[in-house]
Amino acid sequence: MNIRRFYPADLLAGEVAVVTGGGSGLGYAIARDLVACGADVVITSRSAPRLEEAELRIVEETGRLCASFPCDIRKDDEIARLRDYTNSRFGKGSILVNNAAANFHMPAERMTRRAMETVVDIDLMGTFAVTRAFVPDMIEARRGAILSITVPSVNRGFPGFSHAGAAKAGIISLTGSWAREWGRYGIRVNALAPGPVPTEGVTVNMLGKDATDVPGAFAEHSEVAALGGLGTPEEIASAAVFLCSPAASWITGVNLTVDGGMELSTPLHRPVTG
């Protein structure tokens, strides 16, 4: 899917965007399409080599520059350096995409405090900390868009991933709170909940499958959605660009599910064993 089929190349001209977890998967796709729509983008994650590779790929695919900066979003000092780098490279951030996350399968009865704290620290507290670092500039400018990646149907639970489900539920609550508090400053705060999308990270960390067979790992999900088949990173990125753009100027506080109607077709989750 070519983002330029749907959006003009200058849709986000003049915007400065930061995408956490932007070196791979959905974060990469979102960052690439923000760049393609004219935004100046900084991608960040803990892996410098992965960021460098992603930066080069974005330049090749869009013909526009992208910047990268390694950052562990669990550490306030590194987040401060990320903000300072963004400000010096492009100017103050006006779009923030909270995509960085940690995830791994663990049945609830075996869930350790360390496992819970690890995921909550990255997913929930990381989202809080990065947003808290960038929002003062948005408040001063009286404009901005904040988008966080969540999960669909969080109220139905997330069997096998109760740590991630709890963290994402917290992010959805923050989304509503922030939307109400910061709306008076012209800041829109939304969340995006992708259905199953074949990516290497989800294949390995959530499905426990071999990264060399991503399509095969998702085979059982391919006919569940009302629209049939599986989603793509590009389809998720297209929705993300919309929510970050002026086209969504009257939208805030939502958790938009993008799953091809899978939520409509899927029964309540079966208990997780093993």
Rank of each mutant, 00 (worst) to 15 (best):
R64G: 01
S177V: 14
A102F: 03
G260S: 06
T112G: 09
A102G: 10
A108H: 05
G22D: 10
L82S: 03
V154M: 14
F128M: 13
V119H: 00
E223T: 14
F69K: 06
A9H: 11
G260F: 08
G260W: 05
V97E: 01
A29S: 14
S88R: 13
R184N: 11
E52V: 08
P107R: 12
V254P: 02
P70F: 08
I58L: 10
V258T: 06
F128E: 01
E235Q: 15
P70A: 08
A166H: 07
H163L: 10
L65F: 00
A211I: 06
E234V: 01
L174N: 05
T232P: 09
T175C: 11
L124V: 01
G25L: 07
I251R: 03
R81F: 04
I187Q: 08
V18F: 02
P159N: 13
P196K: 08
V19P: 01
R89K: 15
G170R: 07
W178N: 02
A100T: 00
G186C: 04
I43A: 09
V224I: 15
P159Q: 13
L11D: 01
G260Y: 07
L207A: 05
R270T: 05
F6H: 14
R110G: 13
S148A: 15
I58A: 09
V120I: 14
F90A: 02
V214G: 02
L26T: 06
K75W: 11
A48C: 04
A237I: 08
S222L: 05
T175P: 04
P196D: 10
I30Q: 02
S45K: 06
V197K: 06
G27F: 02
A179C: 11
L65R: 13
R184Y: 02
S265F: 00
F134Q: 03
E200L: 11
E53K: 14
A211W: 08
K168G: 07
G261E: 09
I171F: 02
I43H: 05
N98I: 09
S24Y: 03
L56Y: 00
A211M: 06
R156N: 10
S238H: 13
G176C: 04
F242G: 03
Y85E: 04
H221Q: 13
G183I: 12
P198K: 04
A225G: 07
E53V: 13
G126S: 12
V120Y: 12
W250Y: 15
E60P: 00
L82Q: 04
I146P: 01
A67F: 08
K209R: 15
E53I: 12
A248R: 05
N87T: 14
P159E: 13
V151H: 07
L82K: 08
E109A: 12
G183S: 08
R156I: 03
